[in-house]
Every structure is written in C-alpha cells, then in structure tokens.
C-alpha cells in the first residue's frame, strides 16, 4: 500500500465512523479534506467569508449524510466534492451575485496534475479523466473545465468566452458526449 492508498483508506474509514455518530471522526475528515474543499468553494464563491460559511455548511451536511456514503459506489473525495460544489453553487445562485463575478476572471486552473501523494482520489481514475479531457477539442475542454471550477451556467460561460449561447452549449454537449465515450471505454 502506498501512503496515498493509506490516506484514502483512512478517509473511507473516518467517513464510516462519522456515519456512526463519531464527532472525532468528522474532525479527521475535516483535517484531511477542508483545505481542498475550501479551494474548490472559494474558486466558485470568490469571497473568503462566504466561502468559509459554505465550508461550514458542507461539514454539517457531511455529518448528516455520512450514512449514505457508499465506498463501493463513490470515492470519498468525489462524494465530498459533489456536496461542496453543489452547496457553493446553490449559495452563489441564491445570493444572485453571479453576474458581478463574470467580468473579473481568475486565471484558469492549470492542467498540471497534483503530486500523487497529495491526491485523495484514486490515481488511476484521475489519470483516465485527465487523459480523456486532453483528447477533447480545445473549446470543449476549456468550457467544461471553466464550468467545473468557476460554477458557471451555459449563458454565463457564453458571456465569459464571448461566443453565442448555441455555440457554447454545443461545445459542452459534444465535449461531455466524447468524454462519456472515452471514460466508458476505459
């Protein structure tokens, strides 16, 4: 077992303990994942205070939902990240502030893979996704990545990328379709 494997196994068992109502286990999950999730949330929210409010909400949800985490169906980090992204996107859209952020674009997230020992997801799954994204046409890849990291909708992305809505939608849809074929094909 590599140290990364051990870390992942530790995260799965901590989540199982959270499901059993163990508060110390929630702290373990928090220590292992909160910096990564705050990175994801802050990128979407843009505002540190609001991002930390969302982060807090995320771990309360993790506490309540841990019983429904199934390690055979999802990896702990994608499960956690799904909750974090959805909570951030909901908070942002509820606040109605999204339009203001569109103009001041942050630099796009780099494609460089993180160091293997820092990763909480399965390296093989991760590498396959990166490889399949690389195989997409540039506009398709870029629009999917921007929507993921910045939490933008079709029309916000079309504004950001200065293309007609129809063009943007077809980039995303064709991109997801190719991605699906590539990921399902192994």
């Amino acid at each position: 077992m590599t140290s990364a494997d051990e870390k992942r196994a530790g995260l799965v068992s901590a989540l199982e303990n959270v499901a059993g109502g163990n508060r110390a286990a929630l702290r373990e999950v928090y220590d292992m994942t909160s910096a990564k999730l705050l990175g994801v949330i802050l990128r979407i929210m843009r505002d540190r205070d609001h991002a930390e409010d969302v982060l807090q909400e995320v771990y309360v949800k993790v506490w309540r939902r841990a019983a429904r985490f199934d390690a055979s169906k999802a990896s702990p980090i994608t499960w956690l990240c799904t909750i974090a992204r959805n909570t951030a996107i909901d908070a942002l859209r509820r606040s109605g502030k999204h339009g203001e952020a569109v103009g001041d674009s942050l630099p796009e997230v780099e494609d460089e893979a993180p160091l293997a020992e820092d990763m909480l997801c399965d390296a093989e799954d991760h590498d396959r996704l990166v490889r399949c994204l690389e195989a997409l046409e540039q506009d398709q890849r870029r629009s999917i990545r921007m929507s993921f990291y910045d939490g933008l909708t079709h029309s916000q992305l079309a504004d950001r990328m200065s293309v007609p809505l129809g063009t943007l939608k077809s980039w995303i849809r064709r991109g997801l379709s190719s991605l699906k074929g590539c990921l399902a094909g192994g």
Binding site: G39, R43, S75, E112, P114, M119, L129, F148
Partner: peptide, 13 residues
Amino acid sequence: NRLNLLAEHAEAI
C-alpha cells in the same frame, strides 16, 4: 463521481 475528480487540481487553502 468522475467530474469531481477535477477537484484535485484546485488549490488547497
């Protein structure tokens, strides 16, 4: 389960 693997690329804060 797949798209959220991209979270690994976000900066840890």
